[in-house]
Design a protein around this nucleic acid. Sequence first.
DNA 1: GCAAATTAATGATTTATTCAAG
DNA 2: CTTGAATAAATCATTAATTTGC
Lengths: 173, 173
Amino acid sequence: MEARVGAKCGRWNPTVEQVKVLTDLFSSGLRTPTTDQIQMISTHLSAFGKIESKNVFYWFQNHKARERHHKKRRRGPPDDVDGDGAGDGDHHKPRTRCFPAGRAKDKQEVFWQRPEIKETTETLELFPLKSSISEEEKVIAVRGDLCGRTLYLDATGRDHPPLDLRLSFNYVE
Amino acid sequence: MEARVGAKCGRWNPTVEQVKVLTDLFSSGLRTPTTDQIQMISTHLSAFGKIESKNVFYWFQNHKARERHHKKRRRGPPDDVDGDGAGDGDHHKPRTRCFPAGRAKDKQEVFWQRPEIKETTETLELFPLKSSISEEEKVIAVRGDLCGRTLYLDATGRDHPPLDLRLSFNYVE
DNA sequence: GCAAATTAATGATTTATTCAAG
DNA sequence: CTTGAATAAATCATTAATTTGC
């Protein structure tokens, strides 16, 4: 029975082909794919079944971490599971994290992180400006009805569009 | 001089108003905003200057972590940078991470992670299928010209669109 | 043989650590 | 030194394997 049930979208369940490709890519040396790479891989693997970019990202993250973990804890290596053995023994990553300088991102940046939270949530309203505030001192009043308290935040800034945000957030305790 | 230089996009330099709002939101109890919340906050704060969603995400992440770190390692604070000091001392998060069950995400999920990498990169071509493979055994041949080596990956799966991916990835060592 | 119970794998988050720009 | 940005480690939670009792 293949993975990928129809309606049940609990979590991504990769197909064997998807796992195959990912594993091969990994064993070939790919460790932390770029955004574009992830996108391409995801697009590619979508031919085998439902998949998202974050799945690819997570897969590489987990696979990398667990590769190391298994290496350490392997008590008596009977066979080479990796099937690769291609060096990469030390790899003290120099981490030459140069700066983007040329982002390949779109302007539509949506978060995949933290899909939702089901905790105690309240509503918090952000008022862009009060009518009694001069133009120089715009005040953003944030009324957070959290725990019954009401608080006001003000930030003196330039003019900003008359937005009427209303975001619900979860608070601690 | 306000932050936010025009062309130089080294890294996000928040305005005082942005920091103000973020700090107030944080002190009011917001710890890990949801995707939508991040979006709204970002949209809101964009009125004060250039900002992206990931900036808000990172800000909360760092602020949370460093709040705890400073609590522990406080070695003589010359002045109160935080400007807040609003209680909220302990709050051991119960971490009741119920499951999403209803994602609020869009379908357009773009990565913000790892904008770019400037390391040794090579090209890797993915051939969808070879002509000598039966329909039952589709083979995806991946020829990775990394380090001069060529490797082939094959994944037996169903039919898939004739894609001609060509993704460059960075390899270790 | 099968389904509930248990265990093992592994997808998804959160936290801690690190790097580097300003 | 401060702090934005990024990654690795640790943890949680769910799904698949598997065991077990009938």
